[in-house]
Design a protein around this nucleic acid. Sequence first.
DNA 1: ACGGAAAAAGAAAACGTTTGCGGACGGCGC
DNA 2: GCGCCGTCCGCAAACGTTTTCTTTTTCCGT
Lengths: 340, 340
Amino acid sequence: MPITMRDVSAMAGVSISTVSHVVNNTRAVPDRTRQKVMDAIHATGFMPNTIARSLKRAETRTLGLAIGDISNPYFTAVVHPLEAAAVKAGYTLILTDIGEDPDRETAALQALIGRRVDGLILSPSGAGGAQAIAHAKRNKVPVVQIDRIADRDCDYVVASNQPDMQRLVRHLAQRGHKRIGMLAGLNGLSSTQERIEGYRLGLKDGGIAFDPDLMVTADSSMAPAHATTLKLLALPNPPTALVASNNLMALGALRAIKERRLSVPRDIALVAFDEFEWTDLFQPRLTTIAQPCQEIGEWAVKLMLDRLANPDAPPRHIHVATTLHHRESCGCPADAGPIA
Amino acid sequence: MPITMRDVSAMAGVSISTVSHVVNNTRAVPDRTRQKVMDAIHATGFMPNTIARSLKRAETRTLGLAIGDISNPYFTAVVHPLEAAAVKAGYTLILTDIGEDPDRETAALQALIGRRVDGLILSPSGAGGAQAIAHAKRNKVPVVQIDRIADRDCDYVVASNQPDMQRLVRHLAQRGHKRIGMLAGLNGLSSTQERIEGYRLGLKDGGIAFDPDLMVTADSSMAPAHATTLKLLALPNPPTALVASNNLMALGALRAIKERRLSVPRDIALVAFDEFEWTDLFQPRLTTIAQPCQEIGEWAVKLMLDRLANPDAPPRHIHVATTLHHRESCGCPADAGPIA
DNA sequence: ACGGAAAAAGAAAACGTTTGCGGACGGCGC
DNA sequence: GCGCCGTCCGCAAACGTTTTCTTTTTCCGT
C-alpha cells in the first residue's frame, strides 16, 4: 500500500489535481497552498508513481541500451559516459546484453519495445540487426546505432574504421613487413567489413598483395583469436606482423604468441584496433587505435535526444575520429614520433 | 498511435477481456477463438503495453541495479552473469552507475524506486549506503547488497574478504617480507574494512608488527593508488612487498612501480585482491585473489527472487569463496604449488 | 423439448496519474 | 450594484491493461 497522490491530497486538504500540479509545476499555485502540499508530501514520503505517469503521458523517459557484450571493455567504456549523459538528460537506461546473438537481439528488442522505452541505442548484430531495427521503426521507437551499422537510413555513431585501419597497416608495411596477418572480427558487422577494407587498402599502399591465407576470422573474441593465431603461427611461412581487429582479439593473439614463446615485437609485430586503459602495463605496450569512447557515448545520447525532439529529421551519421597510440609492439622505439 | 488490445479485439470480433486472457493464458479459451485472436495479434503486430500491465498488476518485473562503477572490470564481470540470470527469470535490469558517490546513490535509488522496480541490487556506498537502503525498505522494495554491506539486516552476497586477505599477506610474510605495504580501498566500505582486518591478521600470523606508515588509503581506484604507491616507494625504508586491496589499485601500483624503473618481484613483490581475465598478459603475472564473479551475480538474483517470493523470510547472507591464483608477482617461481 | 450445469465470453471497475474544462470567488471599473 | 476578468482549484475523463462478476451460449440427460 504505497502512498498515492490521493493520500497526499487528503492530508493537504486539496484536490488530487492540485497535488499533481504542484509536483509537476504545471500551473500556478499560490505559495500557501503549495506549502501545504509540500508538507503533506514530506510527511507521507510520497513518491509519484512513474508507471502511472508514463501510462498517461505515453512516454517513459527511459532508453533501451542493447549492446554486444558488457564484459568487453570497449563497450563498458562507452556505456559509462552514455549512462551519465542519459541521466543528466533525465532518462534512465534499461540495459540488455545481446551477446552478439541475433535471436537474443530480437527477443531483447521486443522486450524493450514492450516496455515502451522512448528510444533504443543499439550495437546491432550482423545477422538480425537490420530486421530488429525495422521492427523498432514499425513501432515508432527511434533507434541510434553505435559501433556498427545495420541500417544506413537511421542515426548512427561509429569510428572511422577504414582509414584508421589503413593507416595502421600501412605503418607496418613501411616498417618492412611483407607478410601481415589479420584477425578479422565477427562476420556481418559493418565494422568488421570496414576494417578489412582498411587492411586491404593499407596493404595496397605498401605495395603488398593480399594473401587470403593471412586473413582469418576470429569472431571478435578472445578464444577464437587465440586458436587462429596459433594456426597462423604454424604456417610454413608465418606472418611477421599481426593486426587484431579489436581489443579482445589482440589479447587472444598475445596469449597465443606468448604460449609459443615468441617475443613481440622481435619475432612478430602486433597492433590492434581498440585501446585498453592499462595497455601500458602489458608487455610489450601495444600500438593501438583508440576509439573516443566517451565521445561515442555522448554522441549516442545526443543523437537520441535530438531525434526524440524531432522525429522526422533526416538521419544523422556521426563518424568520430580515433587516435593512434604509437607504442612498441609494432617494433618502433618507445619515443618514435607519431605515425604518418 | 500504437496498437492496443482494443484494436485486436475489434479485428478478432471478441471482447478485450478475451484478448487479455489469450495473451496471458489466464483462462481457458477454445482453440477457434484463440486462433482468431492470435491471427489478429499477428496481423496488427500488437505488443502488450507493459506499462499498463505494470500499473494494474502493481509489479514491473524490473530490477534496479546500482553499482559503483561500470568501468571497473570487477563489476562488469558480476553484471554480465547477473543480467543473464535476471533475463532468464523474466526480469529486465535498469542500470545505474552511482560512481561511489553517496549523493548520486541517493538520487539513483530514488529514481529506481519511483520507477517501481520490484527489487534493488546494490553495491552500497560507504557513507550513504545504510540510509539509502533504509529508504528502499520504507518503500517496501527488497534490497540485495553485493560486494559490500551497509545493512546487516538485509540480504547480501560478498566474498570472504578477511580470511582470504589474511592468507595472501601471510604468504608474503612466509617468503620473508618484513615490510609489507597495503593499499587500502575506499573508506567506509565493509570490504575495505574486512580486507584491512585480514591484512593485520596476516601480519600477525607472520609475526610482523603493524606499521601505520605502510598502510595507506587509495580510494579503490587507479590514480590515487598510483600516487600513494609513489609515496610509499619514496619512504626512507620502503616496503619490500605491496598488497593492493582491489584490481584498479593493483594497476595503479604497477604503473608507479614501472615508472620508478623497479622490477616486480625482484625489487618489490606485488599481490592483489581481484583478478583480471588477462592477468597472464601482464608483466609479471600477478598473484591475485579471484572472486567468483559469476557466482556472485547468480547469487544476487537468486537471493532477490527468493526474497520476492517470500518477503518476510529472515535475511540471508552469502559468503562466496575466492580462489587464490599463485603466479610470479609474489616472487615465487611459475610452477610453485598452491599457497598454504 | 426442457431444465440446468458447464463452457464461453463480455461488461465494467479498478490501477495512479495528467489535463481539459469549467465553477466559485473576489475585486475592479462603471 | 452589475458585469467582467483573473485567480485558484476541483471534477472527471482519459491512458491500456487485468480481473471479478455476470451474462450468454452450448450441450447433455431425461
